[in-house]
Computed example of a mutant assay.
Amino acid sequence: MLVERLLIIGVVTLAVLLVWAGVRYWLAYTVRSLGQKTPFAGLVPTGKPAVVAFTTPGCRECYFRQSPALARLADAVNDQITICILQAADYPQIVTQLGILTAPATVVLDARGVVRHVNLGFVDTPVLLQQIGLLTREVATRQTTVVG
């Protein structure tokens, strides 16, 4: 009886891990398949990294969790990045192209407007800071290389 329960728990855990890994792989594939495309051209200014948050009118998590996290991000980085909040229903082509399945969702762009990260669901400020921090260092390194 105990062995059967442990086996069931193991199988369910393995299934959850496989689904999680599949979603992570799919998101990475989506970002890689975009290459140097800029799906937000004309919507988000270039020249500095950006975070684009997708929301829906009835999304309580967007209002109570993602919006405060974005406000903390804005406070932490001052004017070093652009933060945009878009209604998902207003941009169905971009939502489909990026594989966004849920709200909230955030997309991290580099200074050229190229998609670097797609986050499905709530993402807290430290994760966004890490994703933006990597891009900021990339941009600084590239600028140093070009100038020096």
Results as ranks from 00 to 15, higher is better:
residue 6 L to W: 13
residue 6 L to I: 11
residue 6 L to D: 08
residue 6 L to K: 12
residue 7 L to K: 14
residue 8 I to F: 12
residue 9 I to W: 09
residue 9 I to T: 08
residue 10 G to F: 12
residue 11 V to W: 02
residue 12 V to W: 06
residue 13 T to F: 12
residue 13 T to M: 09
residue 13 T to R: 06
residue 13 T to Y: 07
residue 15 A to D: 01
residue 16 V to R: 07
residue 18 L to R: 11
residue 18 L to E: 07
residue 18 L to M: 11
residue 19 V to I: 14
residue 19 V to A: 11
residue 21 A to M: 11
residue 21 A to G: 10
residue 21 A to E: 11
residue 22 G to A: 03
residue 22 G to L: 04
residue 22 G to H: 02
residue 23 V to A: 08
residue 23 V to R: 13
residue 24 R to L: 11
residue 25 Y to I: 01
residue 25 Y to Q: 08
residue 26 W to Q: 15
residue 26 W to N: 11
residue 27 L to Q: 15
residue 28 A to G: 10
residue 29 Y to K: 08
residue 32 R to T: 07
residue 32 R to G: 00
residue 33 S to L: 05
residue 34 L to G: 14
residue 35 G to T: 04
residue 35 G to M: 07
residue 38 T to D: 02
residue 38 T to S: 10
residue 38 T to R: 15
residue 38 T to E: 13
residue 39 P to H: 09
residue 40 F to H: 03
residue 40 F to T: 05
residue 40 F to P: 01
residue 41 A to C: 00
residue 42 G to Y: 04
residue 42 G to P: 01
residue 43 L to P: 01
residue 43 L to A: 02
residue 43 L to I: 07
residue 44 V to P: 01
residue 45 P to K: 12
residue 45 P to M: 04
residue 46 T to H: 02
residue 47 G to N: 06
residue 48 K to G: 06
residue 49 P to H: 11
residue 50 A to Q: 07
residue 50 A to S: 13
residue 51 V to T: 06
residue 51 V to P: 01
residue 52 V to W: 04
residue 53 A to D: 06
residue 54 F to M: 06
residue 54 F to E: 03
residue 54 F to K: 05
residue 54 F to N: 07
residue 55 T to V: 09
residue 56 T to W: 04
residue 56 T to G: 15
residue 56 T to R: 14
residue 57 P to H: 12
residue 58 G to Q: 13
residue 59 C to S: 13
residue 59 C to I: 14
residue 60 R to P: 00
residue 60 R to K: 12
residue 62 C to H: 10
residue 62 C to M: 09
residue 63 Y to T: 15
residue 63 Y to K: 15
residue 65 R to M: 12
residue 65 R to H: 13
residue 65 R to Y: 14
residue 66 Q to P: 01
residue 67 S to Q: 14
residue 68 P to G: 12
residue 68 P to A: 12
residue 69 A to K: 03
residue 69 A to E: 12
residue 72 R to W: 08
residue 72 R to A: 15
residue 72 R to F: 08
residue 72 R to H: 12
residue 73 L to R: 07
residue 74 A to Y: 00
residue 74 A to V: 09
residue 75 D to M: 10
residue 76 A to L: 05
residue 76 A to F: 04
residue 77 V to Q: 05
residue 78 N to H: 14
residue 78 N to D: 14
residue 81 I to K: 05
residue 81 I to C: 04
residue 82 T to Q: 06
residue 82 T to D: 04
residue 83 I to C: 04
residue 84 C to S: 11
residue 84 C to G: 00
residue 86 L to C: 02
residue 86 L to I: 05
residue 87 Q to C: 01
residue 88 A to W: 05
residue 88 A to V: 03
residue 88 A to G: 02
residue 89 A to P: 00
residue 90 D to P: 00
residue 90 D to M: 09
residue 91 Y to G: 01
residue 91 Y to S: 04
residue 91 Y to A: 02
residue 91 Y to W: 13
residue 93 Q to M: 10
residue 93 Q to R: 14
residue 94 I to H: 10
residue 95 V to S: 09
residue 96 T to M: 07
residue 97 Q to L: 15
residue 97 Q to V: 09
residue 97 Q to F: 05
residue 97 Q to P: 00
residue 100 I to G: 06
residue 100 I to S: 03
residue 101 L to Q: 13
residue 101 L to W: 08
residue 102 T to I: 13
residue 102 T to H: 08
residue 103 A to V: 06
residue 105 A to S: 15
